[in-house]
Write a protein that binds this DNA or RNA. Structure first.
Lengths: 353, 353
DNA sequence: TCCCGAAGTTCGATTTAAATG
DNA sequence: GCATTTAAATCGAACTTCGGG
């Protein structure tokens, strides 16, 4: 690997001059055009590319951003990563990945490693867990610019998340407009702030249109450690609903995986989806589109959330380098209703016509 | 952030001594015990942690591995990433992520960025594309130790992949043992080496048991650019099969997404799965477990593939530092049959009993 | 003062060669 | 020669300062 000194020797100029020319530093205005071209030619000939390690050591910037994911196997995470990577890539930044495996102690060690790498910023993708974790103190005392994706944990930490109340509203509104009145709800676990936020949206809409929510048709997921467990939980919670005997024509599930569990339960109970019961999910993760029936769901703009987070980090970096103070910002992105096959108008009860 | 010189000043020793003590360098044997403890105490007090950038500049190692993924949104990739990350983490290495977006030109630029970061090794997760790309020359001339996951592209590049012929065999064997004799096949696209390898396994088994494969029941996926398009392709190819009118009782699909597309087609044609037609996939990606019916499939040990790849990279790194030459190795990992709900014994034709 | 270029210092840690008692 | 410690060189680039025309 050729160094700047190789270029200097080969071109007959000093390393300083080469550096100034190749970086288009301010001083480059004073350097003659032909020496510039000469140096650039030699640099290209030699295939010189500056050693980022050396450069980083000088200006304390290594063009890398730490991306901490709570569970990379969660399909919710990957589109976010795609968004993050795309934005960083366009800015010539590189993501350093860390996976907490849904484990708080692992989170801390992983954070340690990212900070040791001297990442310039931190993006935390908080999908499920990340509640017990005392991220705040851990991160805040490190004084590194951070964006949380998927949660709003503290006013001092920037965040990007979907508008959960609106999402909840979209779900129930869709079912309502299809004609459903007896709707069952599988709420998210208590420990997730999302659960309550979506529920607020649901209740708000219900109040607006005068729909009453039967508390016997409302169940709640337990506090799970693994997002994939939502499948079994959705299954068993739906079984509970069916066993109580209270009739319902639709289920609004906390997320897609839960909804798929619900569909499985309905099938095994002999109820066809959507003919005999509609099901709506939340997130629009990969399985939603390819399941049979495909899942109607409220889409979180995950890629855009990732892109936003990355851009915010880059912006704060730029602001800091200009010695400007940038207040933490909290973005709320709009969800979108995706209508597929798992919802349909309710069938009239035989006794009703 | 305290530097080594701060520790030196505070403890009353020189930076050299501090470095030697803290790194447990060979010379540390000659240093008195109490100066060691003294230095270590001061270091802990100050919360000193060495600057990796400076250290990397010295020894040309930054404890980072480039991980190039061809499409991070492909559910096939994420378990591999999990395996890679876990193994690297345990070795205190860090993965730098790059996503080619299924785009060869992007691949090159991303590779560039990884190399600029001076990663110590490269893991390429080749899921779908990566055929047109001239990876070989691009990587080989960089002279960086590389492992390909999911493909075997060249003898000179190490690789980890599933035993495709065995996987193909497991799939057809399962269907055969259930009693299926009229089996349709959706082969993978020609440009993927996997397609042929799995097909070899299938034909091998068929020959062994004297099962004849009806060429009219064999269709082939087109050369797709995006793995998710396999869903639509699986759908339409199954439709074709149905339209020809040749009877079959089972479908062996190239992968899970294709299989799910096939299930959708069968449903829309009014054939229930598995009662009226069995379907088996390949990969065992996330959607397989949560679809309805859940998908019987041949599992690729993806996490293990990732872990293997990471370990191979770490090993070559260690070998190089000891000036040993390490020949590229090619690992084949065993697939595993995962039986779920989408396969069952064939029904007897009404005219047969 | 403007133009052109180079020498030398700095970033923070590692390591070799050398110095001290 | 031995045990113990350190000054100085090094990694590669960036930037400040300086000198001559």
């Amino acid at each position: 690997m050729p160094t700047i000194r190789d270029v200097a020797r080969e071109s007959g100029f000093s390393a300083s001059t080469v550096s100034i020319v190749l970086n288009r530093a301010p001083l480059a205005r004073y350097i003659r055009k032909d020496t510039k071209t000469q140096i650039e030619t030699v640099a290209k000939q030699l295939g010189y590319s500056p050693n980022l390690l050396a450069r980083s050591l000088r200006n304390q910037r290594n063009h890398s951003i730490g991306v901490m994911v709570f569970d990379i196997t969660d399909p919710f995470c990957t589109p976010i990563l795609r968004g993050v990577e795309t934005t960083l890539f366009n800015a010539s930044f590189v993501p350093i990945l860390a996976d907490a495996h849904n484990d708080p102690s692992r989170f801390e060690r992983a954070l340690e490693m990212l900070l040791e790498q001297r990442v310039e910023g931190l993006i935390v993708v908080a999908n499920w867990l990340c509640v017990n974790v005392n991220i705040l103190s851990d991160i805040e005392k490190r004084n590194i610019s951070t964006v949380i994706v998927g949660r709003d944990l503290a006013p001092s930490l920037s965040s990007v998340q979907v508008d959960n109340p609106l999402g909840g509203r979209l779900a129930i509104e869709h079912l309502y407009k299809l004609g459903h009145r007896k709707i069952a709800f599988i709420r998210g676990p208590k420990m997730l702030a999302d659960s309550n936020q979506r529920w607020r949206g649901i209740r708000g809409f219900a109040a607006t249109v005068g729909l009453k929510i039967d508390p016997r048709l409302v169940v709640e997921l337990p506090n799970l450690l693994n997002p994939m467990h939502g499948f079994e939980a959705g299954y068993s919670k739906t079984m509970e609903l069916l066993e109580t005997g209270h009739p319902f024509t639709a289920i609004s599930a906390f997320d897609d995986v839960t909804a798929l569990g619900a569909i499985k339960a309905l099938r095994s109970a002999g109820r066809r989806v959507p003919e005999q019961c509609s099901v709506i999910g939340f997130d629009d993760t990969t399985p939603a589109a390819v399941s049979a029936p495909s899942l109607t769901t409220v889409r979180q703009p995950m890629e855009s959330m990732g892109a936003n987070a990355a851009q915010m980090i880059l912006d704060t970096g730029a602001a800091i380098s200009q010695k400007m103070e940038l207040a933490p910002s909290h973005r709320l992105l709009a969800p979108e209703l995706i209508v597929r096959e798992s919802t349909a108008p309710p069938v009239k009860f035989s006794g009703e016509h």
